[in-house]
Design a protein around this nucleic acid. Structure first.
Lengths: 212, 212, 212, 212
DNA sequence: AATGAATGAGATTTCATTCAT
DNA sequence: GATGAATGAAATCTCATTCAT
């Protein structure tokens, strides 16, 4: 009862602070704002987080790091993806990835903004992606090759290049660059990859215009 | 003389503030720090920037926006690039682009961190890249196709995918993700693209490991 | 308890600020001085008056305007005054009025000094007096006429002229022009009016010198 | 030439500062504002007034004190006034006095606002008036009595009461309380005095209403 | 647990004045 | 005489944190 309420208050504090930090930055958010946003008396925050603002910040990031062991694509979906044709597979990966990012948008924005956040999320799965760690996409491509759906190639390099596209998507979401009206452009890009990867002769569409 | 000295003082203020804003963020940088960093009295900043911290911040971004009409790759280099073999061309583009980014790293970090900065740099060439604007790379590929160096494909889509890689590089530099020791991994990626684009049969290397 | 103490702190701030503003002017009073004068920490004023110096200034004037509906003579005294002989009546009015002014001296000084104060105290009873608003004195004179104590005259004009004398007293108190040693001069003035207003022949004293 | 220009600059500084001090108060006026108002470089004011803002303030008041030996009514007009009928005489005195006040309005406003000003203008002719110093009005009344135009009375007391009315006028002008539409009310007051002072029986108008 | 009054260090900004040119 | 860059003390205000109730 009392414990449950306390836990609830703690959670409300964390999630409200997370939203505020994400919107206005750590320094741009005042402790008073956090308190007001959950209708808490000024001193009480220090009951839940004795070290104050800094502790609430660290807690948000640490809990986030713990929870998001599978922040991004979990390998469980590999089986689903491998059975889709290339273009559909790419779009499915893209959509799932985008949704995962959107669910973690507050913490991602904090990570992009605050240097200290990046030192807390040490094993972060976000920024490291651009270095080419995420063997699952490589795995999918290899399976498709084994089924004879795509040609032989450097599957790891191909995985890295797709990761790059996905990482761009993270940045796009973090910085509110809408992908409205980008569906056709994206499809065209996916078809382009499908064509490059295809076994026979390329049947690329070339006259279309990529929409702005 | 005196005018020149005044202009120099103004420049020192601007560049010192730019560096501090980039390192510690707008809110994390105090006016006092800016003044100390140029060894000037507390009130002087208001002589050059009567609206204070805000004005010096806007000025940094506005002047940067004006100067960096060609912040990234200028089309003048197209002729150089088109005469290089694909892998070398990609590496040259990558290096030139990285250098351009490094030269503007302070402003870029500010733009990534501060929401207000993004509302000032409205026509920015940074974030917009991920939407696929930069026809110059497409142009290079078409020329190479006309020379018979690469196969036919959707050149615009190919351009967009390379832009994506370059944009990843921007983020990498902004967030201090070193590319030391990444040379081989990058080369492998470039060779992968070269292979996909090549006219004859692919001679891809597949057994190598991309280093972490 | 705690609420009462908070209210007391607020009151101490208000009355200390009122005194300081009255002595040294709005701009001549520092927030620090106000805080020191009530032995409180620098930030506390903003707890009670979030808009700071400005707000405490407005509050002083607004509360004063509300409380001083009967800033000056209240008509309840008319019955007392009408039963006194003319000279005694004038002296009684003068003394009561002077006391009322002295009780409000701080706010009056602020009103005389600060333009903004005059825009807050819009329905002020101070400056408007010189335009001849205060029907109560006219009423007293009429009653005395009805009792046969004074001659017929333009009672309203007579009221206005006495108001003028009282207003001079306001200015005298505001600007610390003591009326010590002015008792005889004042009496002479009152006797002069009594004589002018008297029914029979004037028995004016004429050889006396009004002291400087 | 050069001296003349210097004197002119000095005068411009003084009169501009006088206006600014009168409008915004001593503390509310910045040295920079004064300099800008006469298009002077920042440091140059200290050439003309080595002690800066304070010296310019003292100079304004000291020069004003010297020049306005006859700030108010000069006795030279007594001859004119004594030949007018009472009501016309009072109106003439009122108008001349009002004009004199208006000509000195800037300094008067400074004197009303700034305590220090009142310590500089020690022999001031303004505030002292309310203490009954201005024998000239007494003199006029005596002359009128000698001509048989008014009855015998305490002429000095009468002088003091008229001074009070005039002093109210000073305050009215200083505080921008217009006397538009007050002409009839004033005339009625003057007729009231004329009636009280008249030799025969009073023929007072009593039914009129004094306009608000 | 809860409240919000109180603290005080530190931030931004102002401004009279000085001084090198 | 003239300029305006430079100075630095002091003002207003913010805000994380503490603490008595």
């Amino acid at each position: 009862m009392r414990e449950a309420q306390a836990a609830e208050t703690r959670e409300k504090l964390l999630s409200s602070a997370r939203r505020l930090f994400s919107e206005k930055g750590y320094q741009g958010t005042t402790v008073r704002e956090i308190n007001r946003s959950v209708k808490l008396a000024d001193g009480l925050l220090y009951h839940y987080f004795p070290d104050g603002k800094r502790e609430i910040f660290r807690t948000i990031l640490e809990e986030s790091a713990r929870q998001s062991a599978d922040l991004f694509l979990n390998s469980g979906n590999i089986a689903v993806y491998e059975n889709l044709p290339v273009v559909e597979m790419l779009e499915a990966v893209y959509q799932d990835f985008s949704n995962n990012v959107r669910e973690n948008i507050d913490v991602l924005r904090i990570v992009f903004r605050e240097e200290e956040a990046r030192s807390i999320i040490t094993d972060d799965r976000v920024l490291c992606m651009i270095r080419g760690q995420a063997p699952w996409f490589t795995e999918i491509l290899k399976r498709k090759y084994n089924k004879g759906e795509i040609r032989e190639m450097d599957f790891e390099a191909a995985g890295v290049s797709i990761e790059g596209l996905l990482f761009n998507r993270v940045v796009g979401i973090v910085y509110d660059l809408s992908d409205e009206g980008q569906y056709e452009a994206r499809m065209r890009l996916f078809r382009h990859f499908a064509s490059l990867w295809s076994i026979g002769e390329a049947e690329e569409v070339q006259d279309e215009k990529v929409p702005a």
